[in-house]
């Protein structure tokens, strides 16, 4: 599985990075230096500072981030990592990387509204061991998509050695889902899986897989 892991100074995906060894076959580590922030630094600096002070501020800060990016890369063992260092806006940079690299999954720790719009399955990791995960299906419309999502979710859960369940609260047409996985009466385990368009409110402590 090809994993895309964005790293940002305010959004450091500690849990996701720990999970990579089990989940990923290869990793694209996208280290994003916030362009707006750097522009702000530059504009503040160029306005207030004499040029002696100005010249190396941005370069120095970028170098510090490059070193940090290398550190993060080296912290991942046993999985090949491609490091991409970009200065840009968080979502835009991820979007561009998804287009460029077509990752199988995007891994992060933070549940941000903007993630939903990205064109890749998203793993939002809350940390801890995952023994069971449940896919929550709220409607059987787009059954083809649901089937593909279940296959994908099963694969992810297998890699984590977690049991996979399906929770479908409706009583009608349950038989359609039965061949795809074990149906349960309520969401079980540490992770829940949703189709992005069917996502409902989820407990804060559960890891999320949005497909």
């Amino acid at each position: 599985m090809r994993c895309l892991i964005p790293v940002h100074q305010e959004l450091y995906p500690k849990n996701s990075l720990k999970r990579t060894e089990k989940l990923c076959d290869e990793i694209v580590l996208l280290y994003i230096v916030d362009k707006k922030l750097m522009d702000k630094v530059q504009s503040e600096a160029s306005y207030i500072l004499p040029s002696f002070a100005l010249q190396n501020v941005e370069e120095f800060i970028l170098n510090m981030h490059r070193q940090e990016a290398e550190k993060v890369k080296n912290s991942i063992r046993n999985v090949p990592v491609e490091l991409r260092f970009v200065k840009g806006e968080y979502y835009e940079s991820i979007e561009r990387e998804i287009l460029r690299n077509s990752p199988d999954i995007l891994m992060t720790d933070s549940h941000l509204r903007g993630l939903i719009n990205l064109d890749a399955p998203i793993w939002i990791d809350r940390g801890g061991e995952i023994r069971e995960c449940t896919m929550i299906v709220t409607s059987l419309r787009k059954i083809g998509k649901i089937k593909r999502a279940i296959e994908f979710a099963k694969n992810v859960c297998d890699r984590l050695s977690a049991s996979f369940y399906i929770y479908y609260p409706n009583t009608q047409e349950k038989n359609i889902l039965e061949p795809l996985g074990k149906i349960v009466d309520s969401a079980r385990g540490e992770a829940v899986v949703f189709l992005k368009e069917q996502m409902q409110r989820v407990p804060e402590d559960k890891t999320l897989l949005l497909i």
Binding site: Q9, D34, L37, M38, K40, V41, E44, A45, I48, V57, I61, M64, H65, E68
Partner: peptide, 10 residues
């Protein structure tokens, strides 16, 4: 600006 500069180091 000092706050922003130091923050930007991460």
């Amino acid at each position: 600006p000092g706050n922003i500069m130091t923050y930007s180091t991460g």
